[in-house]
C-alpha cells in the first residue's frame, strides 16, 4: 500500500509542481497516473521513491515512512525511471547482478528471475553486451528487469511504454498484469490514454500538481456517460 499525504513541491517560488497531493493506492491494483506533460507525474513519483525531498508531506510505503525509515521503505518497491540511460558501460548481466547485490538477492532466485524476465522481454541474448549498445527500448527493458530482481511488492514505473515496440509493450503489459494478479501493486504514469484504459483498475488524473480524479475507470465513465476517455480527460484537465 502506498499512502501519500499532503505532498507539496515547488521548484520555483511562482508555481507548485505538486500541490498538497494526498492519495492512497491499495494492494493488488494497477493504477495509472495520467496527466498532460508537466502535470507533476514525474515529480510525484520522485518524491514517492525518495529521489526528491518534498517541501511538505510524507510518503508511506507498506507503512514505512520515506522520511523516517528510508532504507526499509526503499526495499518495498522497484522503480523504473523515464531515463534509462544509466550504467552504459556495464554489460546487461553485470547490471542485473549489481542490482542483485544491492538488494541482497540469493543467487538461485537471481538467476531464475534474470532468465525469466529477460527471456520474456527478449533481451536474454544481449545480456553479454554493454548497455551502451542497447536501443532505447532495450535499455528500458534491462532497467525493468533490474527493478524486478528483488520481487518487490510494489512496482513503480515512469512512462514505461514510451519507446517500446508493440511486442515488448505487450510483454510488459502481460508482466504487469501477472504482477498484479499475484496480489502486488503497480503504479505507472503515462500520457497515453488507451494504455491506461486497457490495463488498469484505477486511474488517477493529475493536472497542475493536483488530483482531478481518483477512482475506478467504470465510476469515471458513469460520471460522464457516453463520453470517451479522451474527451473526459480533456474536460477534466481544462
Amino acid at each position: 500500500m502506498i499512502q501519500l499525504s499532503n505532498l507539496t513541491k515547488s521548484y520555483t517560488k511562482a508555481k507548485k509542481a505538486v500541490d498538497t497531493l494526498s492519495l492512497t493506492i491499495s494492494d493488488g491494483s494497477i493504477t495509472a497516473f495520467i496527466g498532460p506533460n508537466g502535470a507533476g507525474k514525474t515529480t510525484t513519483l520522485k518524491m514517492m521513491t525518495g529521489i526528491l525531498k518534498p517541501d511538505h508531506g510524507d510518503v508511506l510505503i507498506n507503512s514505512y515512512s520515506m522520511a523516517a525509515q528510508p532504507i526499509e521503505a526503499k526495499k518495498q518497491f522497484g522503480f523504473v525511471s523515464d531515463n534509462p540511460d544509466s550504467f552504459l558501460r556495464l554489460k546487461g548481466i553485470e547490471y542485473l547482478h549489481l542490482m542483485g547485490d544491492i538488494y541482497e538477492v540469493s543467487m538461485s532466485d537471481r538467476l531464475e528471475r534474470i532468465e525469466n524476465y529477460t527471456k520474456r522481454l527478449g533481451i536474454y541474448d544481449t545480456l553479454n553486451d554493454k548497455i551502451l549498445s542497447y536501443s532505447h527500448g532495450m535499455r528500458q527493458k534491462i532497467m525493468i528487469c533490474g527493478a524486478l530482481i528483488h520481487q518487490p511488492n510494489i512496482l513503480i514505473l515512469d512512462e514505461p511504454l514510451t519507446g517500446l515496440d508493440p511486442q515488448s509493450a505487450f510483454e510488459l503489459k502481460e508482466i504487469m498484469r501477472e504482477f498484479s494478479r499475484s496480489g502486488k501493486t503497480i503504479l505507472f504514469s503515462t500520457h497515453v490514454l488507451d494504455v491506461a484504459e486497457r490495463l488498469c483498475d484505477k486511474i488517477c488524473i493529475i493536472h497542475q500538481g493536483k488530483i482531478m480524479y481518483d477512482g475506478t475507470l467504470e465510476a469515471l465513465k458513469e460520471q460522464y456517460p457516453n463520453t470517451s476517455l479522451e474527451e473526459i480527460f480533456l474536460k477534466v484537465t481544462l
Binding site: D101, E104, M107, I114, Y124, L127, N128, S133
Partner: peptide, 26 residues
C-alpha cells in the same frame, strides 16, 4: 554507433558471478 560485437549469452556466463556485499559490488 557505440555498439560492439555480440557474444552469445550462455547459462555459464549467466552464472559466472559471485554474490558480493553491496559495498564491494559498488
Amino acid at each position: 554507433s557505440g555498439s560492439s560485437s555480440t557474444k552469445k549469452m550462455t547459462l555459464k556466463s549467466l552464472r559466472a558471478h559471485q554474490i558480493k556485499p553491496a559495498i564491494v559490488a559498488l
